[in-house]
């Protein structure tokens, strides 16, 4: 049986390795939480105007999610978005595969260093304002795989995470609770501090 020889792209591979190595060496520390929404200082200084209210209402009720479905948590995310747990109540049933359409990235699964540049690229392509939910133990800290040689210990090494949802995998109820937290957070943001 003749099997054709697989093509091979050493330059692309070499470029990919460089990107991975660069990202790996530049993300040794967790990124802090993005907006200081609980920060006293800011809370005292912002004016919750009607404009803010309107904008925030619009933003929080139509969170479109980017699919970043890497591993097991995905199935709990899909369960949540199917009819039983009905994520459509929050205007979130639209799953987008294009980062340019989405406001929220739910990191459902383990992140490996090989995958990290791709996720970061997706995040960078999303339009502001954007939010990140780290779903599951892997999203928070690498979870059961934290010791592994190829796993990123938490998405907060490469993305600013807004809400963390523990669990391995988190139940749909937990995911919904996390989404509820994010909506609260959006409610309290203001155009004067989050772009």
């Amino acid at each position: 049986m003749e099997v054709r020889i697989e093509p091979c792209y050493p330059e692309i591979d070499a470029h990919e390795s460089r990107v991975i190595e660069d990202l790996k060496s530049s993300s040794t520390q967790p990124i802090a939480e993005p907006s200081g929404w609980l920060d006293e200082e800011i809370n005292r200084n912002i004016l919750v105007t009607t404009v803010d209210k309107l904008l925030n209402w619009g933003r929080k009720t139509s969170l479109w999610t980017e699919t970043s479905f890497t591993a097991c948590c995905t199935f709990e995310f899909i369960s949540t978005s199917s009819s039983r747990f009905d994520i459509a109540r929050f205007g979130m049933e639209v799953l987008r595969s294009s980062p340019r359409h989405s406001d929220l990235i739910v990191t459902a699964g383990t992140l490996t260093w090989k995958m990290a540049p791709q996720i970061k690229r997706v995040y960078d392509q999303m339009a502001e304002p954007k939010w990140v939910i780290a779903m599951g133990a892997c999203g928070i800290s690498g979870g059961i795989f934290a010791d592994s040689y190829s796993v990123v210990p938490g998405y907060n090494r490469i993305l600013p995470v807004d809400v963390y949802i523990p669990g391995c995998p988190p139940r749909p109820e937990a995911l919904l609770a996390g989404i509820e937290k994010l909506r609260k957070k959006i409610e309290q943001s203001s155009i004067s501090n989050k772009s």
Binding site: R4, E6, P7, C8, Y9, I12, T70, A71, G109, T110, T112, K114, M115, Q118, I144, F145, D147, S148, Y149, S150, V151
Partner: peptide, 26 residues
């Protein structure tokens, strides 16, 4: 990674490893 001619795939290279978590080593 695919080479396509018009719509037709002429060659393809599967790339693995984006979820390599090292389970066997762990």
């Amino acid at each position: 990674r695919a080479h396509i001619d018009g719509e037709v795939i002429t060659d393809i290279e599967p790339v693995f490893g984006y979820l390599h978590r090292g389970i066997e080593k762990l």
